[in-house]
Amino acid sequence: MALLKVENLSKSFSGLKAVSNLEMEIKEGELIGLIGPNGAGKTTVFNLLTGVYVPTEGTITFQGKKMNGLPPYKVSYLGMARTFQNIRLFGDLTVIDNVKIAYHQHVSYNTLTGILRLPGFFKGEAEMEQKAYEFLKIFGLHEKANELAKNLPYGQQRRLEIARALATKPSLLLLDEPAAGMNPQETQNLMELIRWIRKEFNLTILLIEHDMSLVMGVCERIYVLDYGMVIAHGTPDEIKTNPKVIEAYLGEEAI
């Protein structure tokens, strides 16, 4: 069964179609790439999937559930998590608090327990602390747990975004340009990390990326978007030789 099924999805902003008639199907455990020239509508697709935008037309089915128009936090409850192209961390909070906030939906104590400092509070907080620390460790951020997120270097901020997304315990992870601004070595490490977390957490991953070496290196299937439409999809090898893709990218970036 498909984990995510997108049918006839369209979104227009005051008449301008940003995404039109998108069809997409992702099976459990797949690692899919979403590529396309600048302004092709890739991030809009993410915003539609995660409920930031309400689709103009079409349906999104996730784990057999239709989820058009659900607010983003409910999409998160259903098991979809994302990172942001323009990093959106909670800058004035510590690194570990960033992760704890994402883990909040799994916390067991209620508001009154927290206010009255009942035993459930201490138990819950201890669990959060430990889990958050584990996530940080995976991304090598545990030594910076008590630093403010805004003080991290760029590459670590990107990794913290992924750690934070993972803390919501998703089944589908959407990564929006995770390698943006990283050097080749960092990109290489990130590639391995993505492969590893997929196995470790049983994840399905959909990623937007401009770095072709990363996309071609890790993705099993690729969707190519141009002017809001899917112009091609297939394995990396098929995509590389697809004339439509080459045309869309001509003068843009070397494949």
Binding site: Y73, S76, R82, H104
Partner: peptide, 13 residues
């Protein structure tokens, strides 16, 4: 800190 990110992380803002 960031309403959009909070919402995406499952916080009913």
């Amino acid at each position: 800190e960031n309403e959009i990110a909070a919402e995406a992380m499952g916080i009913n803002t």
